[in-house]
């Protein structure tokens, strides 16, 4: 049985009458890359702040590697690496100065610390910037340095809160690649994000939260399958000539529930697996010229929208 790194039990946190998190329970196993999803105001940031010991829950318990974060915060924090969504660096310190400072706060001894500085900067590909002041760092470089400080002590779990927010496409891709690399290395990650495609790319399992309550927690694959079973299969018919007669012919096939036209593509939802062979035939018979025909599984976005709902 996998070791539990994070255990959250019946946690509630309210600000006055407004409860940001209500009766939340979840766990993260060792080696899991865990996505924490929710719309704005769902309670993600409050949850992360509770998990990392910045605020205390009104009710319930949170333990990190078996240490209650409320009562044994020092011990619990030894196992945590944090990349917050908003952070600041000390402009007049170099990259190495930053890591040296944080390494000391982590209680690392000189030789371990210096080795960790070298290793962490190499890991985030900032070795060449070791002795440069962070004043001149780009947003992406700053983000990577913050990831480096979180990795210095090889934490049991790394919390990443909106890790690519505010980065340009190049910087965002660099950070995503870095996170994927860490996933491949078996690190336990807890990623909070509202960018669903990113989470789908970086995580194996997710929890979806809305209005402070946990809606679902499972692997992305399982969630997708459940949705597929619930809503039916979705087939994509890409046509050279998406004309009216073709549309009518496909719509007339028995078992076709709905068709959504997006440019040259028909998104066809069906309730019967056998019908997939009828659709191209009907299209060709009606004069359609098919460029591609394939099935798509529900994306994380589909799952998310199904659970949370548009505009809710």
């Amino acid at each position: 049985m996998a070791e539990t790194v994070v255990e959250v039990q019946n946690v509630t946190r309210c600000y006055g009458k407004l409860c940001a998190v209500q009766d939340l329970s979840l766990s993260v196993e060792k080696g899991e890359s865990f996505g924490f999803l929710g719309p704005n105001g769902a309670g993600k940031t409050t949850t992360i702040k509770m998990l990392t010991g910045f605020i205390k829950p009104d009710r319930g318990t949170i333990s990190i590697m078996g240490h209650d974060i409320a009562r044994e915060d020092i011990e619990a924090k030894r196992h945590i690496g944090l990349v917050p969504d908003e952070y600041g660096l000390y402009d007049d310190l170099t990259a190495a100065d930053h890591l040296r400072f944080y390494g000391r706060l982590l209680g690392m001894h000189h030789s371990d610390r210096e080795a960790a500085i070298e290793r962490s900067l190499k890991r985030v590909e900032l070795s060449e910037q070791t002795n440069k002041k962070t004043k001149g760092f780009s947003h992406g470089m700053r983000q990577r340095l913050v990831i480096a400080q979180a990795l210095m002590h090889d934490p049991a779990i790394l919390f990443l809160d909106e890790p690519t927010t505010g980065l340009d496409p190049v910087g965002a891709k660099e950070v995503r690649d870095l996170i994927k690399k860490m996933t491949g290395e078996g690190m336990t990650l807890f990623i909070s994000s509202h960018l669903l495609f990113e989470v789908q790319e970086m995580c194996k399992s997710v929890a979806i939260i809305n209005r402070g309550r946990l809606l679902k927690k499972d692997t992305i694959e399982n969630l997708s399958t459940v949705l597929k079973n619930k809503t039916g299969r979705q087939l994509i018919l890409l046509l050279q000539n998406p004309v009216e007669p073709v549309y009518k012919a496909v719509a007339a096939v028995k078992g076709v529930e709905s068709i959504t036209v997006e440019g040259q593509a028909y998104k066809v939802r069906v309730n019967n697996p056998e019908v997939q062979f009828e659709i191209p035939k009907a299209a060709v018979d009606a004069g359609g010229r098919i460029m591609a025909y394939y099935e798509v599984n529900p994306s994380l976005e589909d799952v998310f929208m199904d659970l949370v709902g548009v505009g809710k």
Partner: peptide, 17 residues
């Protein structure tokens, strides 16, 4: 200053009193 610069969060995330 730490608070407005948002460096306080990194500082207090470490296992220190």
């Amino acid at each position: 200053g730490e608070r407005s610069r948002k460096s306080l969060i990194l500082l207090t995330s470490k296992p220190v009193k």
